[in-house]
Design a protein around this nucleic acid. Sequence first.
RNA 1: GCCCCUGUAGCUCAAUGGAUAGAGCAUCUGCCUUCUAAGCAGAAAAUACAGGUUCGAUUCCUGUCAGGGGCACCA
Length: 535
Amino acid sequence: MIRQEIKEAVCEAVRSLAKDKSISIEGFSLTSGAAAVEFSKDRDHGDYASNIAMQIAQATKKNPKDLADLIKARIEDGPSKKLFEKIEVAGPGFINFRVSKNYFQKEVSRILKEKDKFGAINIGKNLKTQVEFISSNPSGQMHVGNGRGAFYGDVLARILTKAGYKTDKEFYINDAKVSKQIQELGKTALGHGESYLTPYLKETIEKLKPGLSKMVSETEAGYYLSQAVLKDLKKFVEKKLDIKFDYWISEEDLYKQSWVISTYDILKKQKLVFEKDDAYWLKLSDAGQKDEVLLRKNGSPTYFLSDIAYHRYKIERGYKKIIDIWGADHQGHIPRMNAVMKILGYKGEYEVLISQIVRLKGGKMSKREGNIITLESLVDEVGLDAARFFYLVKSLNAQMEFDVELAKEKSEKSPVFYVQYAYARISSILAKSKAVKPAASSATGLLVFSSEIELIKELLRLQEVVEDTAADYQVQRLFQYSQDLATSFHKFYCDCRVITEDKKLTAARLQLVMATKIVLKNTFDLMGISAPEKM
RNA sequence: GCCCCUGUAGCUCAAUGGAUAGAGCAUCUGCCUUCUAAGCAGAAAAUACAGGUUCGAUUCCUGUCAGGGGCACCA
């Protein structure tokens, strides 16, 4: 990776300067990401830029510009010199690197060789990782709010996998018979109540009439109904949303397999359970949290207890990195679960991400649905690709306003088409090129226009995007990248005609086009959107 | 009252302790006899307010104001 190579070159130069006492970097850690090397969008600032000189200015008691000159000279004396066409010191002390065209051109053939593997890195080192998301209740259809965690979680898992984590996707089903929601659902199923009663649920109950009519227990009826809802939910998620989960874990199964009761016993053994007001509580005050009820006055376990059991189950299955994605209404639950993970002795990484509220601006989407906006009607309305894109644009912890009318209206001009259009154009060029006899030659030395180089730079950036996103989970970066990549291609398309009389140049540019196709496709795969050959 | 998230262009959203804060939509101006104009080139337009830390703050900290969410023997 070019960014990594430059970073190493910079660090090496600084180390070498420190070694022969040209500078002193007492108390400064080079490894802590201090030698920031960033991609430059502005070519006046080179291809990559480092602010290292300004970072270490204080520690070395030297002027940043002088330092930058020293580092620049050291790199130019070193083995990595051949990477660069030019190194410049600019502004308050930036070191701007212009990478050699030769390097870029060679990278094109690497992309052609790696194909769908291109962009994959191994910072995860195969660490057993789990992302749990959606986990909507089996009491009805998913709504537009669920869509956010759904697509976000799916894409995050894809990125982590690409980054070398052994990632599983998991859906937790809140179908415990002892839970309030199953009880409520049971009342509704037997016509004793109206909780969750949407048109969809009415229909489902109608379909289940033969089975339900024999039931007297609300709990059994609720569970029976929830399993039917779950079946629809699974089908919707897998077929319509195209999200494949590795595991669907049932809360009821955790009860059946004694995970809940054994977890209670473990907590009790640790002397963390106490009785108050006829209920049994988990002592969390030592962790600075409010104590929580585990067993109610009536003896039934709370959701909190089964959630502890569920997380214990995750740990027992050997996950070293666990990511939960919850809705904003669960954020108060985070400090408690953090405390619980400590109690359970978890040594791995545990992180809860909160998907902020999705608000509706455009009002009702369809009269038939009432005022509950289902994710299904949205996907039907704007299409899966556009829907996924729409959710991926925003950072997870910012609220998002969903203007339904706008989403429908704009679907023709949606950014997703802009990116897919680049892919379609490529396919069109490649289709036409079949009539042309290929000249066997490499791209080296032939791709020299700035729009060609800029395109190659963008292609190579996929690896950086994967690396950065696997580290900070800012999935919207991928959306941004896809736009930049498409822009670079569209510019190249306008500036440089691919198929011409010049056989060698045609071959070189065809290679670049094929490489772009690969990188675009890999980016689409990460986002879970389709790559159309024609539009 | 306490806790969490957010405040960037007319609208919907990005980004960043650094060098000119980016896109799309909307508005305006150019570009199709050549691989798809669902495109390209250009104009105009933004960091809520007040302090602080810093060589440098839109970013970090504090306060104010505004919006949203949470503070159950619900999940």
